[in-house]
Design a protein around this nucleic acid. Structure first.
Lengths: 184, 184
DNA sequence: TGTACATCAGTGAACGCGCGTTCACTGATGTAC
DNA sequence: TGTACATCAGTGAACGCGCGTTCACTGATGTAC
């Protein structure tokens, strides 16, 4: 099975579309192939089982979002500016993606996805910790974890509101140490 | 159906026990009645459907935790001390309750539970906002929301670790404005 | 050019399974007279 | 005290349903000679 087979992409797109319409129970294989306009057997040509599909779906989502974060922070050295730019790029990306809640939050009730999220978060934690360390925050790794918790919460709130929530973003940025609040 | 019927309590206890053993899929009615040692029909004597059961289960959990928070903050006026005491009581209660992850986090993929959590969080937000307001935090309501996000994240981390994580708690308390870190 | 064969994405009927829910029934308890 | 009836928590077999997964098959494409 090629990693970039077109039919595989059709299945993943159908999955993202169903994830957008509230809830993990919509993400049954029956629904996915129906939405994709393919036979049920085709699903198993491209994915060994449902879990593998969910993991692939999550990777797509994360890659999409992470690309935007990297684009926004390319060439910026660790510090408060990079941290703020990363957060804002992340929030904008999540706000624009209708599958955010299902894939980022709900899907964590599947153990396989939770492991995946933890791995991805480890990368993000390291980056944010570098920013915080350069800002002389005492506990950079633990603090980074908490920053992620806040950003994810803002992302989910904005997704539910279907728009940017500037006051909430501002409150978040004010939680960051000293120099915060200067580039928004 | 009496609100405090003993058989009802047996069903809820069985539910809490199953929630403790990783995952919402364990919380099928089949499993609940098997664990409770009752016939399947008995379930429907006490609960109209599965959703109502999950909501009741969540209320039990929340009441248990909230009692401890109120006990820890009784008579303390709004401010940094009350905020810290509430957070610590909350964290201790969640750490000691094996069903924390399933009921606080995973169950939110059920719309009915999410509504329930949002209601309960509204109460908590109001209390925390009062504390923050007395500490002259600019955006008390939004800030309170973010404080909850951090506390919940710490609670889940401690639950997974099955122990208190003092460094993480410290990092959290240091995110709180000025006077923070003085009573731990 | 034509023929024989291999490959492999795609198909869809069929499978067993566990789920949530229903319902006619049981049997203990309480009440009326 | 004994009898008739009402109540209602508890029972468990049965229901239909949608799920994830399997598998023998199709048919288009590529390769060998």
């Amino acid at each position: 099975v090629s990693e970039h087979h077109p039919t595989r992409a059709v299945l993943l797109e159908a999955g993202a579309q169903l994830a957008a319409s509230e809830g993990l129970h919509n993400l049954s294989i029956n629904n996915v192939v129906k939405t994709a306009g393919l036979a049920k057997g085709t699903f198993y040509v491209h994915f060994p089982d449902r879990t593998a599909f969910l993991v692939a779906l999550h990777r797509c989502f994360h890659d999409r979002v992470w690309d935007r974060v990297e684009q926004a922070t390319a060439g910026v050295s660790p510090g408060p500016v990079r941290l703020q730019r990363a957060a804002i790029a992340y929030l904008d990306a999540c706000r624009d993606d209708a599958s955010t809640r299902s894939i980022l939050f709900d899907a964590q009730s599947e153990p396989a996805i939770r492991r995946e999220v933890q791995e991805r978060n480890a990368t993000a934690t390291a980056t944010i910790a570098a920013d915080l360390r350069s800002m002389s925050v005492p506990n950079p790794n633990h603090a980074a974890r908490l920053v992620i918790a806040m950003v994810v919460d803002v992302a989910l709130a904005e997704r539910d509101a279907r728009r940017t929530l500037p006051a909430l973003r501002k409150a978040f940025l004010e939680f960051l140490p000293p120099s915060g609040g200067n580039i928004i």
